[in-house]
Every structure is written in C-alpha cells, then in structure tokens.
Design a protein around this nucleic acid. Sequence first.
RNA 1: GCCCACAUAGCACAGGGGUAGUGCACACCCUUGGUAAGGGUGAGGUCGUGAGUUCAAGUCUCACUGUGGGCUCCA
Length: 653
Amino acid sequence: MAVTISLPDGSKKEFPSEPSVLDVAKSIGPRLAKDTLGAVIDNEKDIIDLRSKIKNGTSIKIVTVKDKVSLEVIRHSAAHVMAQAVQELWPKVKVTIGPVIENGFFYDFDSPHAFTPEDLEKIEKKMQEICKKDYAVTREEWQVDEAIQTFEKMGEKYKVELIAELKNKGEKTVSIYHQGPWFDLCRGPHVQHLGQIPVMKVLSLAGAYWRGDEKREQLQRIYATAFLNEADLKKHLHELEEAKKRDHRRLGKDLGLFIFHHLAPGSPFFTPNGTVIYNELQRFLRDKYQEHNYQEVITPQIFDIDLFHQSGHYENYRENMYFSKIEERDFGCKPMNCPGHCLLYGSDHRSYRDLPWRVADFGRLHRYERSGVMHGLTRVRSFSQDDAHIFCALEQLQAEIEGFMQFLNEVYTTLGMTKYHVYLSTRPPKRMGSDEVWDKAEAALEKALKQLNIEYTVNIGDGAFYGPKLDIMFVDAINRPWQLGTLQCDFNLPQAFSLKYVGDDNAEHAPVMLHRAILGSFERFIGVYLEHTAGHLPFWLSPIQVRVLNVTDRQLDYSAHLEKELKALGIRAYLDGRNEKLGYKIREAQLLKVPYMLVIGDKEKDTDTISVRLSSGEMVNNLKKSDFFEMLEKEYRLRSLKSLIKPKQGEKV
RNA sequence: GCCCACAUAGCACAGGGGUAGUGCACACCCUUGGUAAGGGUGAGGUCGUGAGUUCAAGUCUCACUGUGGGCUCCA
C-alpha cells in the first residue's frame, strides 16, 4: 500500500510501503541522509528515532546534526557510550538507566568499585576511544522473554526488572540498540553511528537510588554532557562557573551577611549587615500588611504536645519536630504558626463581621531537616516566614485568594521578580480529613485561578497533609525556578480546633483557614534573592547604602560631618576614613557592592558638592548636596529598584 | 537518612610521618595619594573532634561532627 508523507515545505512524497525516517531523508538527498539524527512528526514534542517507520499521512521534519534539538539524540547515544566505557573499564559494573536531562545526561551504575574523580577522566577518555571507532548504531526488536533470558545470563538484573515490567504492561517485544560489541535495552532515539557525537564531557559523580526509592539499591550516578561543538560546551561550562559566582553562600561570606557554625547545624547566624536585609524585608512586609488589612501577632515558641496532637502535626509531622520533656511534661517546638493561630482565633467569640480575620506572624520556626538536605540559607532548620493565616467564610474564599495573588504580585514587582508560575497541588496519599472536604477545597482554588485568568499547572498528590495548595514558583535571573510563595486552603484545622463564627443567621459556622506566605521564609528568600541579583541589592535593601571616601586626611572632618548628616536622614552611610589611597577604598566598596561611593576631596569640601560613584562604575559629579539627599531619601522611601541618580550624557571625569 | 568527597590562620589555598607556609584581610610605622590593590614591620594556627598504628601523626587507620555534590524528603 502506498504511503504519503508530507514535508515542512508543504510538498508530499510517496513511498511503496512505510518508510523509516532515514528512508525519507535518503529520498530527499544523500547529504541530508548522512546528517539525519531523527525526526519530529506531526509537530509533536519528542524526537523519534531515525529507524522508526512512518505511517501514511504523517507530516515529518527531519532533524539533523545542525539542529539544536538533535542534542537530545546525541546525548542519548552519549549515555550509551558512557555505559559501554564504564563496563569496558570495570566489567563487574551493572547498568541501570541513563536518561537525557536539561543540559546533559547521566547514567546510574551499580558498581562494587566506588568511582573516584580520577575515574571520571578515565571514563571520558574511554568514551572518546569508543566514539573514534565510529560503530554503527543498529536496532533490533527482541521478544520479551528472549530479552529477559539474555540479560539474566549477563547478570544485568536491573534490565531484567525493567523488561519484566514492560512485559507486565503487555509489551511483546523490546528494542535493543547495538553499538559494536555492546548493546542496551532502549527506546531511543539514537544516532546513526557514534562518530556523530561531536563533543562529550564527564562532569560529576553522585549517589542515587534505584528507581528513586531510598529503600532500594544505592547506585552511583555519573553526570556528563554532550554538545554540538566545542564552543557550545565551553559556553555551558562558563555558565556553570557564572552560576557558582552567584552562589548565595559565597556572597554571604564575601559580603559578610551570615555565617554557619557546626554547633548549630542548619541554623544561620545573621551578621549586622545580613540582619539589615532581614529587617528591611520585614519592614516592607509590615507596611504591606497595613495596606492589605492584616494584623500582626506574636505567639509562643514552645507548646505542650497536646496542641500538636490536636492539630495533627504530631501524627503527620513528628519526625520533623523538636521535642523536650520538662517537669514530666512533653513539649514541642512549633514547626508552623498555624496551631497557635487557631488557639488565638478560638480565644474569643467571632462574628461574621470580624471576618476575614487576617493574622500575620514572623514567629521563629524550627523543623528538624534530615542531615543531608540542608543547603545554605535555602534549606535550614531554624527560620521565620512572612506567614499569615486568613480565617474567612466559605463565600469569602475566592476574594481572599484573589487578594492574595494581588498582594503577591505587588511584593514581587517591588523586588523586581517579574517571572513566576503558579502550581496547584492536590491531595497527597498521607492526609487528614474526608475526601468530601478535599473536593471542596481543591475546587475552590481551581475556580479562583480560572476566574483570575491565571495560568497554572496541576501537581497531583503534592498538597499538604491538611489541604490543597497553590505554590508560586519564582524564576530567577538565570532561569532557575524557586518555590517561595504559597497559599494553602485548609478545612481541617478549623474543624480540629472546633473553630466557629456566628453568621448573620445567628447560627454557628466553621470558618475556612488559609495559610499563606509570599516570600516563604526570610532565610530562603534572602538566599534566592542574592542569587537572583548576584548580590547587587536595591538601595533600600543594601546593608551599606553609602560609603564616604575622603581622598586625604584634610577632608576627614568634613567627611565625618557628611556621614553624620546622611545618618540623620536615616541613610546607612559609613565613612571609610582609613589612611589608604582612594583607589584602594573604591575597590573595597566596589567588592562590597555599595550602591553609592561619595568621593570627598578638596574640591567637594570647598564647594560643598557631592561627587558620587555608582556601583556600576558610573560617576556623577558636582551634585548639589540637597538634591543628592533628596534623591537618596526618595529612592529609599519608594523602595526603588533602580538608581535615581543618573549620570548626565557624556559626563565622565 | 543514603552514596561519594572534603575539613590546615578571619577568607582563599599550598604542604604530605621528624613539630607549619603563601596571598588577601588584621595591627603598627612610612606615605597624604582623585575613582578597582603604595611600601615596610608585626601579630595570628593544640592543621574539625576523639581514638588507634608508630620512637615520632596535620600527614597513615577508624569512628564521630560539620560542610560540599547528588539521591530521597521538603507542610
């Protein structure tokens, strides 16, 4: 039966029977066929293998070595090359899986030999040797039982497990890719011959569990990458270096913002400079709470564990909590503010006129995180959130969700965080409350998002144990996603605490409780924001806003006076009056990313004017002191992202 | 918690069985210099903690703690 295939230029080609991708390419031209690595059919996302048969009526776009998307094919094959290399070097190693990931690929091995960093170089060399042999990559279809037998004989138990699973799913055959003497179970796609893999680089070593299950075998994962050319690889490695420079742990040290100590693992100490950032953020949120009709409260740190039995935290969250026994009584340190807020709500009669009742709490929380998961400021054991709970009537839910998204947007805009995405997480397996209640809560969130026309993605089973939630993923300056804000809908806690309000019908009703945070934790946020800004904080968040630099001792008194004047305006200005050259002082201030450096020489002193150097390196001279002060005050008050002091066109010293 | 690696001065690192080094930072002195490092002198470490091997341990072995890269987890 004749088969018709359409090409991207609109033309159609006929074949006597179903052709492979490569057949189609050959029919167009030998050059194209030579470079073919796969194809995209019917505008689908995934690339199909060049050996796949094409059905009648399909539209096809051939992917060649020149297309960036072919990286997926190249990396897939490179993963096989890595597995072959490893097995040639260490024949006892068992292979598992080796998928393509963003920017590269990895392969997980079960190896009696623990790989060392030196081994990585050996592996890379071996991979290059294998590629030089330029084996043709061929595909065979094997009967599942035949495949199981073959891999069993080889002792490849992981492959056997995978194939047995495919068999259970009803697969009759599996595809096997050969390259020279080596072969592997694989769905593809793969290159025609190994010489088509341009450049490879083995990157790092890690541990991983078989099938991602911590109860199963611990495997050794080797990360690597492949690119179309040396330049692209170099660019990628450069980007990795650049990302390292933004590492907030590095910046925290360099800028003197926070430290860690082995006697308080996972618990940051904020230095005076770091504390400025912390407090400025808190002040910002307090201002916003005022605007959005929230009230701040202060609640206890340590509670009788009866509270956590009542809230369900003991049953669901115990392994992450700190406990102590004092005078034969069991206490727990709060991991969240919500149970305390429920007690506060329940301490008085509430009327529908009091709702929505929005309570904010900067209380310190402690969560016992497993030792291997801590990471700088982004995963800690002691932290404080911009946490608030909204108790409202069911009918008010939608408006509150809307108000929250508005609030969040204002905060993110001020901070220059314009890219974020919303995720809706639904009921997890381990949870409290009836399915009926969960239905209601999930529906409410979804409805609100739709009404607001907010795009979102559903994460099935990712909700909190007490309710579904919205997670706001902020995407930073180098496109990494971070979970910061959250809005959690909770029908369970109000029930657990028998919370009520009296409605206009004079009957008692249960309020809905919303848990919400915009920055998430201050610790985590500061970490993320440092990486986002690469340490270049806006003026209002800068620990040192202005550094006054005298050129010689002659201007020391005048400079000290200027420092005093700025401080009187509430500006964090500091004099660097040391006996050092100006260039040296500039360099230091520059490394500390101080927004404004005031250079005070005889000229400025005699004319009472300001010469300022911005952290960008730009300079503005002969500013009237009062004008400068006014701009600083304004920039601070408005929490401006950009400097209000603009160099005049063409002006340079 | 799991796998692997690392731990030497405030920071960044070198050293590798015979009693500790460099650069920056710090202190003092000289220098008073106009936009990213002027010069000199000095102080600072029981080499993460605890055991073991050895005549001798920062160095070798083990355990623990912390940190890092991942995995798992992340309300």
